[in-house]
Design a protein around this nucleic acid. Structure first.
Lengths: 243, 243
DNA sequence: CATTTCATATTGTGATCACATATTACTCTA
DNA sequence: TAGAGTAATATGTGATCACAATATGAAATG
């Protein structure tokens, strides 16, 4: 399997002004992974990324270590770094963890919601729809994540958000692949229902809407995974994990 | 507040044989944090740890970056590294996240439980009791975590375990402090109930037992936190977070 | 005695190099 | 032509150094 470093292009997503190199590298790689610009199973190298991003190996090493801790990357024992592959069970676990964490985070965020936050969420919900219509996957995925993150981030310094984003990073690469295959038409989002529940401060309705959004929007895609795996059910062995 | 590097002594907990330096450093610091050997708010330095552990700065840097990604450490923007402080809200969030994740992880693990696993859990449950009796906090905490981790790790490659352990790392330092203050006598564990539920493969009873174990064993301690904060409600400001 | 100013020491960040090891590509053989 | 053996290439890890920014503590000031 060849390296996909060539596919990683510098992007100016986050406004990283006075940030450290490590932060810039981290943000960039993180966005690439979250939006699925790097395929599951793809390999990365420190020197390759260093050359591409125009920095030395140090910031790359720390950024990779950080992403590995978030389970966005896998540091294999054989001197290789890759985007984790997806499996039916792992996908099922990720969905269950998302439901458990995100419904709770949503319910707890409800106390902190104000009109400004609802307005922001409405903007993202609209952006999701536009992304679906225009087939703009980057926009679709980014707006979808932003919609949820806006809600969960309502309480300051939430302990939920980092955990949830770790799950997103693990799903991102696969999600993009699946979306490219079956298209966004078969996905359903319950953002309208969620917004209704938020406006009426109905906690249980919000939990239900969030869970439905996660399950309905992803279940179909999850089933498609089987085809993927059946097709690419080769060279999946992974050496004993490293630190 | 002075550095507590002096309190960190090399310990040979994990059998790190052919592991990398970074792994050894990580495991050591991780154990220290999990068992609360480093107090909340304590500061660490790269050079201090490097000297103490007898390695160069490199493995320390990567280990710290990793622990920071797991939210076990806080990399402040002012060139300081510290164990995060606890607050009533953060404690409440951590407990809620633990309940959400651990009840789900327990329910999902039930399918993979066998007699050998139950035996191991019984051993840890007994060790918890001994730790309480002998006032051995290290043993108490370690056995308690091991009890839960054994259950959640029943399914291979669980996505829940890393998330849950991140929460443990965030609670550990405070838990130890609280335990030292009010003693373990006021804690209650529902390990017996949990084991009963596991043996009878009663998923709902297991969820209830796990939730009760988390809430009853910690709620009292959580309430004690208020006193802590009222007393030490000084110099809590934290500079804008770093990467 | 409290507060500010300023020089010194400390700290995290990034770059570069050496090294052991794993991967890759080539050559030789059956 | 396929496969095993081998040389060379590439990779992660760790150490060391330079540097800018920050903290620290003493001195000065009111």
């Amino acid at each position: 399997m060849s390296s996909v470093s060539e596919n990683i292009q510098p992007n100016e997503d986050a406004a990283n002004d006075g940030a450290t190199m490590q932060q810039r590298v981290y943000s960039e790689l993180r966005t690439d992974i979250l939006l699925g610009r790097i395929a599951p199973g793809a390999h990365l190298t420190i020197r390759g990324l260093a050359e591409r991003l125009g920095v030395s190996a140090m910031p790359i090493r720390e950024a990779l270590r950080r992403l590995a801790a978030e389970r966005a990357l896998e540091l294999l024992g054989n001197r290789r770094i890759r985007i984790p592959k997806m499996s039916p069970q792992r996908f099922d676990d990720l969905l269950a963890a998302r439901v458990a964490l995100e419904t709770e985070a949503a319910a707890r965020a409800l106390n902190y919601v104000d009109d400004a936050l609802i307005a922001r969420m409405e903007k993202y919900a609209a952006e999701v729809d536009e992304g679906v219509v225009t087939r703009d996957y980057d926009r679709w995925l980014a707006a979808n994540f932003a919609f949820h993150r806006t809600l969960y981030s309502a309480p300051p310094e939430s302990v939920f958000v980092p955990l949830i984003e770790s799950l997103w990073l693990q799903i991102g690469p696969f999600l993009r692949q699946a979306l490219l295959t079956i298209g966004p038409d078969y996905t359903i989002d319950r953002h309208a229902e969620a917004l209704d529940a938020i406006r009426s401060r109905n906690r249980m309705a919000l939990r239900i809407a969030i869970e439905a959004d996660l399950r309905d929007g992803i279940t179909h895609i999850g089933n498609e995974l089987m085809r993927f795996n059946a097709a690419a059910a080769t060279e999946d062995r992974k050496p004993s994990e490293r630190g």
